[in-house]
Amino acid sequence: MLPRMSAEPEPVSNPPSLGAIYAGFFLIGICGFGGVLPWARWLLVQRRRWMTPDDFNDLLALCSFLPGPNIVNLSVAFGARHHGMLGSAAAFFGLMGAPFCIVLGLASLYAHFGSSPVLQRSCDAVAAAAAGLFLSLAVKTAAPLFQRRSLVGYAFAALAFVAVGVLRLPLPYVMLTLAPLSILAAHFLEP
């Protein structure tokens, strides 16, 4: 059995329109304080139900093993799945448009007002809340893994966690070492 977990809704079957993809990723971008990934999953899986939890993990896995920001890759890959090049463009510009303007606005404000202690404390607290969202994302992405109950899967997840989270080894080396080994294990152990 699964541990107590808020039930994930069933995905809807009809594919989102170009406008809906743009609007969806616009929301993801503008909400994405302290990390965009939790918001991407929240919108794609829970809110709009465009993907299943497994689907999300699958696409995220692909995007994490390509160079570039994985959230940008995810937007491009998700758009491509539904509307090809146009879908990718809609998702990409939806994601990047608002944050692009906001960060330039912030930089202008910062140039005028500098850093105030109130602002600093507020930023610290937002960072803490954002870390909480990431924690919840970690538990949710792990759920399909627990359903599969593969000991080898647990082992590779644990190895990746320790290597990057605890030992702070460089990410590219960890990925290039663990991914081939994990794929090889899956090749021999899975039917």
Binding site: F65, A131, L135, A138, L145, A157, A160, G165
Partner: peptide, 29 residues
């Protein structure tokens, strides 16, 4: 593709966990 996916997803899950851990350690002073 299924084999690659089965292999890569656990590593990704571990990496997300690591991000959460590192972010929380940095933020929670």
């Amino acid at each position: 593709r299924r084999v690659v996916q089965l292999g890569v997803v656990p590593v990704t899950v571990g990496l997300i966990g690591a991000s959460a851990f590192v972010l929380a350690r940095l933020a929670d002073t």
